[in-house]
Every structure is written in structure tokens, then in C-alpha cells.
């Protein structure tokens, strides 16, 4: 049954968010066309004009992708609300499955779609950045290949953050860790949305209506940060990235010194694992509320 619930949740979410991917594809296609045009054929100022238009297109792509993440959140939470506690809830909640299974299926699907939107946003931001960098460098150095671009990107990061880790592979690993961390936080936030909607349908919490649900969401997020701060103080775990190796440390002082005095890269694992744990706790509480307290009426 869980497999079927997941299948239906994915289909419902896909229908709600596909427009966003069509829009991204459209803007992406526009960028590709703009890249193929030889702007120097458009007179003396053609090259400069082309650069400005391509810059605007890159910005548009990033804004569309950013809006996409927000819209995916809205679509996922709206679908959750309607299918669990709206009219559709009369069917969903009467299914011979545990509400926790329904909740899990919707969370898995919702988190996957949000993460996909987030991945698209990261790809668009990174791609647009390289696109602009390529044009800036192209003016100076002529044709620029991807390796040279990544080298420039790494130099930019090293100079901006004062890192001593210059290996592009290591830097990409740190970025990947931050991307995973962002993913865990986003998946947790999806569950916090589900929790606030569910709590907003429980007696007596339903009395505050939509305002209450927003309030519960902020409360849950604040609690999450509090939980993260507590774990950070009690069980901190950092990955220190040096040019030669990765090492784990549970000392915040060592981690800070590694950044400040040695210029190494440091990634805090605590944030990622505490939001993961918090999301599971909130899932269990939400499942309990859906099973014992919520009414579909």
C-alpha cells in the first residue's frame, strides 16, 4: 500500500509543479538561442548589447528557478492541505492505511519535488555564474574551456573566503556538503509545513485559522533552531578540509582555528544531522496528531 500511496503522491505533486519546469525549460531555451546569436553582426554596439541581454536572460533564469522553489513549496503544502483535511480528505483519510503512511508518502514526494526545484535553482545559479564568467573572461582571453572556468571559480572562492584549499575537487566537495545540508533543511521544512497544517486542524488549535497555521510554522522553525543550537553546544561535529585530508573534530574551537589561522575549509555536520533528527521527531508528532486528533469536517 505504501508504494501505491507514494505513486499517487508523486503524480499529484507532478501535476501541481510541472508548469514551473516548463517555464525553466522555456527560459533555458531562450538563453541557448541568445548564446547562438552572433551579436557582432548587429553593428558597433552589438557585442555589448548582446552581453546585457544575455545577462538579463541569466538573471531571469535564476529568478524563475527561485520562484520555482517557492511555488513548489506552495504546491506541495496546498496539495497536502486539500487531500488530507479538505473535501478530498473524506477519501484519503477513509483509506485502509495508517495516516502515518499517507503522511510519509506525501513527505517523501513533496521533499523530492522541493529538492528537485532546489537542485534546478543551484544548477541555474551555478550555470548562470559560469555563463557570465565565461563572457567576462572571453573578452580578455578569447575562447575559454570548462576547466579554465572552474579554475577561475575556485580562485574566486579562495580569494573571497581566504581559503588555503585551492584544489577544485576539494572545494566542490565542500560545496556538495553544503548542498546536502541545504537539502536536509528543505526536507525538514516540508515536514514543518505539514505539521503546522495538521496542528491547525486539531482542536483547539483550529480556532486561529490560517493565521494560526503560520504561527505554528514559525514556532516549529524557531524550535528547530533552538534544537540545532542545543546540539551544536552539546554534540558539535565538524569536518575540517585541508589540502591533504579531511578530518572530523568535535571541538568548535579547533574548527574555528582551522578557518581563522590556517584558512582550511570547515563544514558543520551538526546542522545537517540535527535538522534530520528534528524532521523525524516532527514527523512522528504529526503522524500521531493525524491518527488521533485531526477531524475531517
Amino acid at each position: 500500500m505504501l508504494g501505491k500511496l507514494i505513486k499517487h503522491a508523486f503524480k499529484a505533486h507532478a501535476r501541481a509543479v510541472y508548469g514551473f519546469y516548463v517555464a525553466i525549460a522555456g527560459v533555458g531555451a531562450l538563453m541557448a538561442i541568445l548564446m547562438l546569436i552572433n551579436w557582432e553582426n548587429f553593428g558597433e554596439n552589438g557585442f555589448g548589447t548582446g552581453l546585457v541581454i544575455k545577462g538579463i536572460a541569466a538573471l531571469l533564469l535564476c529568478l524563475t528557478a527561485f520562484a520555482g522553489v517557492i511555488l513548489t513549496f506552495v504546491a506541495v503544502t496546498r496539495e497536502f492541505h486539500l487531500s488530507m483535511y479538505g473535501k478530498e480528505g473524506e477519501l484519503t483519510m477513509a483509506l485502509p492505511v495508517r495516516p502515518s503512511s499517507i503522511l510519509f508518502a506525501k513527505w517523501l514526494s513533496g521533499a523530492c519535488w522541493v529538492l528537485l526545484s532546489y537542485a534546478v535553482l543551484c544548477f541555474c545559479l551555478f550555470g548562470s555564474f559560469l555563463y557570465i564568467l565565461r563572457h567576462s573572461l572571453g573578452q580578455i582571453q578569447g575562447d575559454v574551456n570548462l576547466t579554465a572556468l572552474l579554475g577561475q571559480f575556485s580562485t574566486l572562492l579562495v580569494n573571497t573566503f581566504g581559503l588555503r584549499v585551492t584544489d577544485i575537487g576539494v572545494i566542490l566537495n565542500i560545496l556538495t556538503m553544503y548542498a546536502i545540508y541545504g537539502g536536509v533543511v528543505l526536507a525538514a521544512v516540508v515536514m514543518l509545513f505539514f505539521f503546522s497544517i495538521t496542528l491547525g486542524h486539531c482542536v483547539p488549535f483550529h480556532k486561529l485559522g490560517v493565521f494560526g497555521r503560520i504561527l505554528y510554522l514559525f514556532g516549529a522553525v524557531a524550535l528547530g533552531f533552538g534544537f540545532a543550537a542545543l546540539l551544536n553546544a552539546l554534540v558539535p561535529i565538524f569536518i575540517v578540509v585541508t589540502p591533504e585530508y579531511y578530518t572530523l573534530t568535535m571541538s568548535a574551537q579547533d574548527a574555528a582555528m582551522a578557518v581563522v589561522y590556517k584558512g582550511y575549509g570547515v563544514f558543520s555536520m551538526t546542522g545537517a544531522y540535527c535538522w534530520g533528527i528534528y524532521a523525524v521527531i516532527v514527523f512522528l508528532v504529526t503522524a500521531m496528531l493525524a491518527e488521533r486528533k485531526v477531524n475531517v469536517d
Partner: peptide, 22 residues
């Protein structure tokens, strides 16, 4: 099994309200 905040005992087909009764 759509309303949960009631008091009392309800059995459907000899079972408590849950997956089996649904």
C-alpha cells in the same frame, strides 16, 4: 474514522476504528 476527537467507545464490525475497520 474521519473524526477522532470524541469521547466514548465505538466498534465497527467488532473492531476498533482503524485500518481493519476501514
Amino acid at each position: 474514522g474521519l473524526i477522532h476527537d470524541y469521547q466514548g467507545v465505538v466498534r465497527v464490525g467488532g473492531k476498533d476504528i482503524g485500518v481493519e475497520s476501514k
